[in-house]
Design a protein around this nucleic acid. Structure first.
Lengths: 79, 79
DNA sequence: AAATATTTGTACGTATGTATG
DNA sequence: GCATACATACGTACAAATATT
């Protein structure tokens, strides 16, 4: 699953939606950590700031929660 | 030997080169540990991440090797 | 044997500067 | 001018491995 770097939709929105889909599909399960920012950066070819912004969306939606120094964990399946 | 915090060259690149020079000069001898990350942070006024990144460059070049929990040791003199 | 300290690795959050559309 | 994106750098925190007391 790759992002459209030339598209009209912001990368951080694309990445957030990809992550939501992976959670819905069970690829990223509740209680498990999201891929780290460095991993997201590599996997989707985005910068730290962009990866961070996407994850912050999920946190704002109540889908994930950050444990400082440990990671960001899935806490709910997004609708 | 101080780093140019306002310069154009990235700090981690400057620090890596300073360490290479110290190894070439024999100040940091083969078989001896590099300064620890906290020491590098203090000595050169950089953050942990910056110090770590510089050391990783030396490791990638085959100049140093990490012994987990003990330190990072000089294993070769860089060209 | 156990608690403490040191060192590394990893990760997050934030800020600044620069470039592009 | 503003939003987006990247690179760099800071500070902080937790875990694992090792060393010390």
């Amino acid at each position: 699953v790759s992002l459209d770097h030339a598209g009209e939709t912001a990368l951080y929105l694309q990445l957030a939606e990809v992550l939501r889909q992976r959670i819905r599909a069970g690829d990223l399960a509740v209680g498990r950590p999201l891929p780290s920012l460095p991993t997201l950066m590599q996997s989707y070819d985005v910068s730290r700031g962009t990866a961070h912004r996407a994850v912050q969306l999920l946190i704002g939606e109540g889908t994930a929660r950050t444990a400082p120094g440990r990671g960001t964990f899935v806490i709910a399946v997004p609708s």
